[in-house]
Structure formats: C-alpha cells, structure tokens
Design a protein around this nucleic acid. Structure first.
Lengths: 205, 205
DNA sequence: TATTTGTTTGACATTTTTGTCGAACACAAA
DNA sequence: TTTGTGTTCGACAAAAATGTCAAACAAATA
C-alpha cells in the first residue's frame, strides 16, 4: 500500500520510463539501468515492482496495445461516402499517432515476432468487429459500386501505407531527409492535411 | 591467404550467417554463438575474421545498405519525365525488394535503434551520391516546373511509403488481410503494376 | 622432411547485464 | 515507543555475452 500520495507512484513512474526506453531500443536493446535512470530510481526497485525484465515488458506492452486499438477502432457512420470514411480513419489515426509516434514501428515488430498471435489477441480484446474488416469490406463495396476504382486490397494497403509509414519510418526519414525532430513533426502535421487531400482524388474513377 | 578454394571461404560463410541472424534479431538481439552455429564454425573464428560483433555488423550492414542503395539510386536518364522517373524507381525498388523482402523492416529498425552507429557506417561506406537527394531534388524541380503538384517532401514520403511499406509491414498485412505467404507474394507482384498506374495519376496537377 | 604461414579451436578472462538478499528506512497503528 | 508493513538501496551473486590467447592443425613450399 502507498503511504504518501503526494507524488506520482513509483509503479507508474517505472512504466512510463520503461515505455520510453522500450520504444526507443526494443526489448533486446533496452537496459534495466537505463529505465531506472529514466525513472530516477534505483535499479533494484524495478525488480521489486516487476520481477523481471520480461514481466515488465509484457505489462508495458498491454498499454501500447490498448493505445493502438483506440486508434484503429472507429465509430463508423454509414452515411459517410467511402472517401469520407477513409479520411475519417486517416484523421483519427494520424492525430493519435502524432501523440505517440514511436508505437508504429514497435507494433510492426510485434507482428513480425509473433506471427499469428496478435490477430487473435486483437479479436478477443476488442470483442467487436475486426477493425480491418470494417474498412476493407467498406472499400470492397465502394469499388463494386464504382465509387472508387482499383483492387480493394491494394487500396487498403495504400491507405495504411500513407498513414502509418511516415511514423514507422520516422527515424529513417529524419535521417535521409536530414530533418530535426521539430522539422519532422511539422512535416507530419502537414501530412495530415496532405493525406486528406490525397485521399480525395487518389482513387477517383 | 586461402589454401583450399574448393569450398566457400569462411569469411563469406560468416557473413551469410550473420546476415540471416541480424535480419531476424537485429544488432542487439543477435548472438555471436547463434551466428557461429548458423555458419557451422567455432565462435572464436568470428573474432579472427572480424574483431568484434560491432565490426561484423558494420561489414554486413554495409552490404544491406548497398543493396538498398542500389534500389534507390538510378541511372537517372535526364530525358525521363518525373513520372517516368518515379515509375522507374518504383519498379527497381519493388523488383529488388521482392527478392529480399526482409531487409525493409530491418532497415527501419536499425535506423530506429542505432541512429548514431548507422550514420558513422554510412559516412565511411559511401563515397557515393546521397541516394535520397537524387530523387528529392528531381521531385523539387518537377514541382517547380509544374509537372506535378504538392510539397516535394510529402511526395517523396508518399512514394517511399507505397513502395516500401508493403514489405516492411509484410507480417502485419499478412495477418490482418489473412493471406498466406504465397497470396501475399502475389499481392506484392500485383502491387508493382498497381503502383505504376498509381504514380501515373497521383500527383498530376 | 622441416619450415612457414594462415586458420581453427578450446580454455580462460573480462565485461555487461540481470537477479537476489538483507539492512536501513519511512510511515502508520498499536 | 514499539511494532508492523511496505519501500528503497547498496553490496553481492549469477548468468550471459563478448573478447583473448596459446596451442594444435592443415596446407603449401623450401
């Protein structure tokens, strides 16, 4: 039990620090000492609150997952045209991603390392319709109706690419475009507008 | 000096094994023992040929980088329109990426995890033209000339996104689209055609 | 055959990272 | 004050990973 509630409790302090370091370095690259320093506590306290590095990681992962789920799940208004719908998705996704830009590459890796499992977790965790299917089936209908043209799967891949890749590839883009953190953040903000315009015309018949 | 040329020389043996392991585990996650096992030699031999893990990594990374650079750098025929040029880039990139689809996510990760080291390696490795600049400056000129419209950087990001992300996010897409390896490979092959058509119209004024 | 040169290996050393334990500590209640 | 409970810390232990070295080895050549 906590004795002094004056400051933020140590457990959250550790989790926040761990998030920072795991996002930056990955599971294998992260060091407990670095997390402890980041949290401003002794390394032993990490073991007191979370038995091991792996346990700490799995705790933190749950919260990343919740964050990303929030991004993808949309209330889908059936009155929307397919273009509006894709714009709605893009807006929600990018607004959320700008807040936590490092999660994207982290998630890509999780999919890489745990091939089949993640999809199951998503299904059981959300207890609702598969978020990807909502979009893909909407796209399929729109293509069938002639609202937009192209292979539905390719359109879906393109949509996710233009939204997600600038975040997943942030480090790479910053490096090859030689942009500062601030400059790239501006590019991302501009990109939201750019993508909305882009979606307006990209799949038009 | 080599004494028996009958079999593949140990140095290449090690490099190939290292590529495999580094691609799968990244720099921090890779273990020298695993690389040695993969190569079928003693771990000490790694140190004989490459002094340290980092040296080995930097050698191997140079080849990955060269591979990716080859994808990006084009003999840039000045007769080409910007659209043709981007199509040329897309074709080259995706042809090459289909051969080695695992490099994309690896590059993204290593940029993310070891920005510092990579910059050093690139510096020492390249007496060559900055691969990104070749494209971006061409795009800038084309925008200035009114051939295409949009912010050059955004166009560049979009171009790379539609080409690279389907490879980097391969595991994710396979999972959420519920596609087998073979089906996704087909999607990638189709995508080449799709992207070429896409580029035809996407940035038109 | 003996020598030289380059390669490979096992045993050992070092470094890095994680994990454990008990003493000291802070606070609340008896 | 004393007792009890939860927390923090430093010292130490253990494990994991990297790095070093001399001896054994294989092949070419003197």
């Amino acid at each position: 039990m906590l004795h002094h509630e004056v400051s933020i409790d140590t457990e959250t302090l550790i989790k926040n620090a761990a998030k920072k370091v795991f996002l930056k370095k990955g599971l294998a690259g992260a060091r407990l000492q670095e997390i402890a320093d980041e949290a401003g506590i002794g390394r032993t306290a990490l073991h007191y609150y979370f038995r091991s590095k792996e346990k700490l990681f799995s705790e933190v992962w749950k919260e990343f997952f919740a964050e990303v789920t929030k991004r993808i799940i949309q209330s889908h208004d059936t009155d929307m045209t397919i273009t509006e719908r894709m714009q709605f998705f893009a807006t929600n996704y990018m607004d959320s991603a700008i807040e936590n830009p490092e999660i994207d590459i982290f998630m890509l890796n999780e999919f890489n390392n745990n091939t089949g499992i993640l999809k199951e977790i998503i299904k059981s965790a959300t207890a609702m319709e598969d978020p990807a299917n909502v979009l893909t089936s909407a796209i399929e209908k729109a293509v069938a109706a002639g609202e937009i043209v192209g292979d539905p799967k390719q359109i879906f891949v393109t949509l996710l690419s233009v939204c997600m890749f600038p975040f997943a590839g942030m480090a790479m883009f910053k490096s090859i475009l030689e942009l500062s953190d601030e400059a790239y953040l501006n590019l991302l903000r501009d990109r939201k507008v750019y993508v909305l315009n882009f979606l307006e015309t990209a799949f038009k018949p």
